[in-house]
């Protein structure tokens, strides 16, 4: 006869067995997941860095008085935010070398600039994509700085470039930290699409492990958790930076203490 005691005991026994097996499973596959984690981290970090640089240049070109620079920036931004990231990744992975070979008669050398490894193709695609979005965020930040700041900077004798670098951009970046953080988190998460190249990132290894073990729930929970740990770290980091570089007496803090105006 099955008593309630047996049912409870069986339940805890099952939980115990599952935990042991998840533990064994995790220990077994942790090196692969770690390897994928590091690849995802590197691709994201490089893409964020190159994306910011692209974004700043595209934003500055878009507000330039030179019509050619302005058109180039507009074209770049519209194309890269107007087509799917998957298409961009596939185009850069497979189309870009062919384009160089067939149209520009370049001799393809694997691993060089004209036919980079999957890792660098992934960074190229993600940087170009995020650069287009960041350009518009950065442009919004620049537009939010009162015109008098540029006038004052120029009247002291700074050149346009110096004024941008020392006066306008430092203030703009303080303002756009929250939307830029969104964009950085997007890069980390969107980097999972580079599995199409294929690059052996975190999602790639997750997929491999599921194929080999059929442990669908466990694997994707761990993979999801690893992505979440990266994005949480990123958002904490930028919130810290936002507070650290907050201009005393300006704006609202995320630490509370904002007076409620009636």
């Amino acid at each position: 006869m099955v008593t309630p005691y047996d049912i409870i005991a069986a339940f805890f026994h099952n939980v115990y067995l599952s935990l042991v097996s998840i533990y064994v499973f995790f220990i077994q596959y942790a090196p692969l997941l770690w390897q994928g984690f590091l690849i995802t981290l590197q691709i994201s970090a490089f893409s964020i860095m190159f994306g910011v640089v692209l974004g700043v240049f595209a934003a500055l070109m878009k507000i330039s008085s030179n019509v050619i620079l302005r058109s180039l920036a507009t074209g770049y931004i519209e194309i890269f935010r107007g087509t799917p990231l998957v298409v961009q990744i596939l185009f850069i992975a497979f189309g870009y070398p062919l384009l160089l070979q067939n149209v520009f008669n370049v001799n393809l050398v694997a691993g060089s600039w004209n036919n980079p490894t999957g890792f660098w193709k992934a960074i190229m695609a993600l940087s170009l994509n995020t650069g287009a979005y960041q350009a518009e965020i950065i442009r919004a930040g620049i537009s939010s700085i009162p015109k008098g700041q540029m006038e004052a900077a120029r009247s002291v004798g700074l050149t346009y470039g110096e004024a941008m670098r020392h006066i306008i951009l430092p203030q703009a970046f303080r303002i756009i930290t929250p939307p830029l953080t969104n964009e950085f988190i997007n890069i980390v998460l969107n980097s999972s699409l580079v599995i199409l190249i294929p690059v052996q990132d975190l999602t790639f290894w997750g997929n491999q492990i599921v194929s080999a073990t059929f442990r669908v729930m466990e694997t994707w929970t761990i993979v999801g958790g690893l992505y979440f740990s990266m994005t949480l770290l990123l958002s904490r980091l930028f919130q810290y930076l936002e507070e650290k570089y907050r201009i005393p007496g300006v704006g609202f803090s995320t630490k509370g203490g904002t007076p409620r105006l009636a």
Partner: peptide, 20 residues
Amino acid sequence: VNVLRQNVGMVFQSFNLFSH
């Protein structure tokens, strides 16, 4: 023009101090 502006100081109605 940048040499000119070193020689000519400007004080603005709205101060325009570098707020950061």
